[in-house]
Amino acid sequence: MQVSTAINKQSVALRDKVERAISSVGTLVLGKPSQIRMALTCLFSQGHLLIEDLPGMGKTTLAHGLAQVLGLSFQRVQFTSDMLPADIVGVSIFDQSTSAFRFHPGPVFTQMLLADEINRTTPKTQSALLEAMEERQVTLDGQSHPLPEPFFVIATQNPNTQFGTFPLPESQLDRFLMRIELGYPDPEAERKLLAEGHSRHRRAPLAVCIDQDDLEAIRTECQAVRVSSSLIDYLQRLVQYTRESPQFAYGVSPRGSLALLQCARTWAYMHGRDYVVPEDLQSLLEPVVGHRLRVAEQVGGHGSEALIRQMLEQVDVVG
């Protein structure tokens, strides 16, 4: 029996490009194909990505690689505690020759912005960036300056337990579509990394695998991925669980469940399906929902990760 997956030739070529992009970034960030796939899913779903991990785990490298394979203009801002909003969005300077204020755009005017160690700066500066993320424009002195299309932010942050961090409030965490962690590389990948040594820094930038037209096409195809009523039932059971279980201080918002569904469509597309299956939701639940939940205080000692795993075990897939 022929399984209908409705893949035409153009789709095959597109998906091929996606696979090439993944393996291409994989030469830069060794041994993390699933995280790369996850990051691309986030970008294809038009969301911003938060990478949370210890310093030196390859967060910045990953962001670099993604910008290169997507062929996007790239800016990097290293956040520090003394930064001001103007350092990001730009300033208006009085030009004596024209006797008028002239806007000097800041680093935010780019297609891909790497906000490094976003939680080391003050909430004031954080919020300036986060406004740009949400509105995709910058307003200064009453004038709006639209940001380029597409516009992605990849923010990295250190775990909140480290010194000198200003944890992002829940409302701002919610702006990020996904939060992923990289984790230590496995021994094999690390060995390769050590063997290559300094030669890695001198290599040429990665070739562009997906141009902007491809990106547009991928987004269109993702929107066409089907979502059955059984799947929505399952999604609702998961969301309901977070709202009812005493283990969570509060549950997933409708924005959160929309985000989960959106990512699941892209994830299904990237796995060559034109419909979403429960496995997609299960793989994405932690990265999409994890940072939107707060663990209730009575449940001391459990991270949201463990609780989400437990939730996946308890919520029945088959209604």
């Binding site: 299956v277 496995e279 299960q282 075990e313 308890q314 029945d316 897939v317 088959v318």
Partner: peptide
């Protein structure tokens, strides 16, 4: 679903039950 649950019940009696969170695939 009913057919699936019947099948799973048969497996369950052989110690191969499905966990609730386990997708069919």
């Amino acid at each position: 679903d009913a057919a699936l649950l019947r099948l799973i019940a048969r497996f369950e009696s052989r110690g191969l039950g499905r966990k609730p969170g386990e997708p069919v695939g």
